[in-house]
């Protein structure tokens, strides 16, 4: 029997990308697509803040929660070295999550960075397995594509260096789809990735009359529950903006709600 928060497995996917599975039945049962867990890596004594990670997948029956993460600093470095049996403290599921597509809608997931991890549950739970448009610098940053393909999601890739798929940003793929949709098909748009990508995709969706597209905006977090106002992002408020807490009011906002700088 595992302890709550115990690491069941933790392995390198490729390069700097790792995948950890935690035992946490409560989160496994409750989590919906687009929510996150706030992980206290108790093994780091001088670091007082938790680290947020999108819920990549859950297995409600086994009571497990999976995250996929990139090593970028001290916390993710320590996490990547933890062996099964180590215990972390998980808070969650947190955040509002994505609204699932209707049965006759095709989810279009626009991803960069760890976005492929954050949106996986959409296609897993949706009737139509939809389409993943993914952008990356090069092959080293393309992760989880096989997981999508294995369940029947169509995957289209854009890379900056043109080494895989189309050359350019993921917005090239989005623009193409918005201009040439398949007749008679109903799409629903979702995005998660680096902020510049989300801003570009959000503007494009609004211009195409799809302000209902959902973007997962996130910022460096502290409490994770809406109490400290550290994680704020700009959302429209009349002609100007207000700061909304990405942890509790988000991380998912519609493209129409987001405030674009210029």
């Amino acid at each position: 029997m595992y302890k709550i928060g115990e690491i069941v497995s933790n392995r390198c996917l490729k390069g700097d990308y790792f995948q950890a599975v935690f035992y946490h039945p409560e989160i496994a049962v409750k989590a919906i697509a687009g929510q996150f867990v706030h992980v206290q890596i108790t093994q780091m004594s001088a670091n007082i803040l938790r680290r947020p990670f999108s819920i990549n997948n859950t297995d409600p029956e086994a009571g497990t929660v999976q995250i996929t993460y990139k090593v970028v600093g001290s916390g993710t470095e320590v996490l990547s070295k933890l062996a099964p049996g180590a215990v972390c403290d998980l808070l969650g599921p947190l955040g509002n999550g994505y609204k699932m597509p209707a049965d006759d809608e095709i989810p279009v997931m626009i991803a960069g960075g760890y976005g492929t991890a954050a949106m996986f549950m959409i296609s897993k739970l949706a009737k139509n397995k939809g389409m993943l448009l993914v952008g990356a610098r090069g092959d080293a940053d393309l992760i989880l594509l096989e997981d999508y393909q294995a369940q029947g999601t169509e995957v289209k890739v854009a890379t900056n260096d043109g080494s895989v798929g189309t050359q350019g940003f993921v917005t090239v793929l989005l623009e193409d789809l918005l201009k040439n949709p398949e007749p008679g098909k109903k799409y629903r748009f979702y995005a998660c990735g680096p902020t510049p990508m989300l801003m570009a995709a959000g503007k494009m969706l609004c211009a195409a009359g799809r302000a209902d597209g959902e973007l997962s905006l996130d910022h460096v977090m502290c409490c994770g529950v809406g109490a400290c106002f550290a994680c704020v992002v700009k959302v429209k408020d009349g002609d100007t903006f207000r700061y909304a807490r990405s942890c509790s009011e988000g991380p998912v906002f519609t493209a129409g709600e987001v405030y674009y700088e210029n």
Binding site: A46, C228, F229, A230, V232, V233
Partner: peptide, 23 residues
């Protein structure tokens, strides 16, 4: 009150800095 621009917090050794700005 809108508060300060982001980033508003940074982790430091056994502590943190914040400049939320009283939103």
């Amino acid at each position: 009150s809108n508060g300060n621009p982001t980033p508003r917090v940074a982790e430091t050794a056994s502590g943190m800095l914040n400049a939320i700005g009283l939103q």
